[in-house]
Nucleic acid binder design. Structure first.
Lengths: 106, 106
DNA sequence: TTTATGTGCAACCATTCGGTTTCGCAAGCT
DNA sequence: AGCTTGCGAAACCGAATGGTTGCACATAAA
C-alpha cells in the first residue's frame, strides 16, 4: 500500500480526474460519466487520491463532492524544480551558441 | 508495458537514479552502489528510463554511461503548470485576506 | 589464449494494480 | 413504510511491477 503522490499521478485516469475536478468539485458519479469505466473504479481512484491528500471530500446530503487539494501538487513541482536549473542552463548555452552564430554572420 | 514518464517517475528508486545522474553520467555498477539493490535491478530501471527517453546512454569501451535527458522532465513540469495558476490565485486570495486584516488593525 | 569484468536479457516469483461484481448502508423520494 | 439513488468496502481476477538468479556476450587484462 504505497501511498505517495508520484504513484498517485502515475495513472492516466487519476491525472484526468485531477484535471477534471480542479475547477469545480464533483461527485463520483459525475466524474465517472467522463470516463469509460464504472463508478466503483473511479471510487477506488478517489480513495487513493484522498489517502495521499491530493483530493478532499465534502459530504452534501447523500452526495460526496470531491475537489482538488492544489497545494499538494506543489510537491511534484518541488521535485521537478531540482532539474529546472539544469534545463535553464542548457537554454542559456543554446543562447550563447545562437549569438555566436549571429556574430559570425556579421 | 505502459511507458510514459509519469509511470517512470512513480518508482522512488528511479527518481533517485535521475537525481544521481543529473550532474554526471554514471555506469550501472556505479549507480547500483548507491542503493540496496542489485546491478540487474538498476539495469531494469535504466531500461525503463531509456525507453521513455528520460535517460540516454553512451558506450565507452565495455562501460555504458547513463545520463539525464533533462528536456524530458519538462513534460512533467508542463502537466504541473496547469495547476500552477490555481495555487497562485489561492496565494493571492490569502494575500487579500492578510491585507484586509491589516486594514482592520488600523 | 585464458581469465576477469561490465553489461543486457530472459525466466521466474511474490506482490501490487486496476477493473468488475456484489453487497451493505444511508439519504431522499413516493 | 417501501423504493430508489449515491456511495464505500470487500472479494475476486488477469495483468503489470520490481526483484532475484542465471546466462550470454562483448571488452579488457593476464
Amino acid at each position: 500500500m504505497r501511498r505517495d503522490i508520484f504513484q498517485a499521478i502515475a495513472d492516466p485516469t487519476r491525472r484526468a480526474i485531477l484535471t477534471l475536478i480542479a475547477l469545480q468539485a464533483m461527485t463520483p458519479n459525475a466524474i465517472a460519466e467522463n470516463f469509460n469505466t464504472t463508478r466503483q473504479s473511479v471510487s477506488k481512484h478517489l480513495r487513493i487520491l484522498t489517502e495521499c491528500e491530493l483530493v478532499k471530500q465534502e459530504q452534501q446530503g447523500r452526495e460526496i463532492y470531491y475537489s482538488l487539494e492544489v497545494e499538494k501538487i506543489k510537491e511534484v513541482d518541488e521535485w521537478v524544480s531540482q532539474f529546472r536549473k539544469l534545463w535553464e542552463t542548457r537554454f542559456n548555452q543554446l543562447d550563447d551558441v545562437l549569438s555566436t552564430l549571429k556574430q559570425q554572420h556579421k
